[in-house]
Write a protein that binds this DNA or RNA. Structure first.
Lengths: 237, 237
DNA sequence: TCAAAAGTGTTCGCTATACACCCATGG
DNA sequence: CCATGGGTGTATAGCGAACACTTTTGA
């Protein structure tokens, strides 16, 4: 992530007081229809060589942190315009052994199907949330914070739909909410609730996710959601 | 806030790449029994000389952002151990006209009564939220974000109690929640809800906030709240 | 024909909401 | 004695949680 600053020439940016490095890291969440996943990068250099970490890099002087995070996201996934959200800035003095680094952390919600490379990329790989290995730096902490922020935000925004494909079954939607909130819903109550909220549009087609009976496909109705929100309405689960 | 870096000597901290300055700002919320307030500082130097701004300053290399924010908070209010929470980091490239500055912003919840100086301090003053003047830098944005973060967080934590004195009337508690959430509750329903939640302890004394009938004083029962939270419980308003 | 998955409905209890009523105090 | 503010109760509607029934399909 960081350049070594040990070579004493070329140190042309000088200040009266010490300045930390500022980086952006991006926790990229995906959903495979059953489990919540994160995209990790295997580090090729020291420190923490061989360990997995979130994609990230230096914030440039002519871009905001969000622009930097979007740049990182595009480099890893090829995606532009994904849902992205700043959730915490990590500042512990020795979180990077080389120098003082402040990391502005974002989480992104993407459709796994849209990510180029994905599983077969050399150094990038999706991990289920319960199978994430020990990470580099303080990225374990970053992940825990990201999960927490996601859990909280889902009470105020229908962010779950960012993770699903255009068309999805109610079952998948329920799996997603259960994965994010780490709870279990009664299947029938979840159906009823969704129908009452009227945020879903039923499509003509049906899906055959496993076998047995075919399930209807739905689409998220954003205009209906916006309309509901206008009238003072909060998403509850 | 920032030192001018124009004098070319004493620039002894050098890097291969440009580094932004990192500061912490602290939005200090207080409550006077009726209205929500913020503590502002009048700037004595350019830029934005004479404008009001949030207290803040450089993050030191040996402290975390939170430690820096606590240091600023203590300098302005004399308080240690207050409730403090990081809510957003502001990174727009030209938000400070002098140089690139990244500001990690916190909000603090304090009891106005405990703040030394307070209104009579030369350059610090409490402002009601609806009477805040145009602020320096992008601090208007920072304030809006702080309010939003406070409104969201109150759904998950009983942070309102941090703003009240040890003993308070239900009326004051209701005023506070109404001020934060910008809604109106029915007085009687609010009473009933509070009684059902059993998070309040009624004290012997009564208060005489204005005139007419005396009101009971209450105290927040944290252990009862923790007990409720253990059993999976969320604060709803 | 049986088991698994999907779609629909029903019941019960709790809580949010909208109110009514009484008590205490000061002008 | 009445206006104001404080404390308590009550009826109703709506939602969440639990659960029953039916249909479709693959083995």
């Amino acid at each position: 992530m960081n350049e070594s600053e040990s070579s004493e020439k070329d140190l042309k940016y000088c200040y009266r007081y010490p300045h930390p490095s500022v980086t952006t890291d991006c926790v990229i969440f995906g959903f495979d229809g059953t489990k919540l996943k994160v995209l990790l990068i295997e580090r090729g250099v020291e420190p923490f060589r061989g360990r997995w970490a979130f994609p990230g890099g230096f914030m440039r002087m002519d871009e905001s942190a969000e622009e930097g995070a979007r740049r990182e996201l595009e480099e890893e996934t090829g995606l532009t315009g994904a849902y992205i959200r700043q959730f915490h800035t990590f500042t512990a003095p020795h979180r990077d052994p080389r120098e003082r680094v402040v990391t502005i952390a974002f989480y992104a919600l993407v459709r796994m199907q849209d990510v180029k490379g994905g599983d077969d990329a050399a150094d990038a790989q999706w991990f289920s949330l319960d199978e994430v290995p020990q990470l580099a730096f303080d990225h374990d902490q970053i992940l825990r914070r990201a999960e927490q922020a996601l859990r909280q935000q889902i009470h105020f925004e229908p962010i779950g739909f960012e993770l699903l494909p255009e068309a999805f079954t109610i079952k998948e939607l329920q799996n997603l909410y259960e994965a994010i909130l780490d709870v279990h819903f009664d299947r029938r109550n979840f159906y009823n609730k969704m129908r009452r909220l009227e945020m879903l549009e039923q499509l003509e087609e049906t899906a055959n996710p496993s076998r047995k009976k075919e399930a209807f496909l739905f689409r998220f109705n954003k205009s209906k959601y916006d309309e509901l929100k206008q009238k003072g309405f909060r998403l509850e689960f």
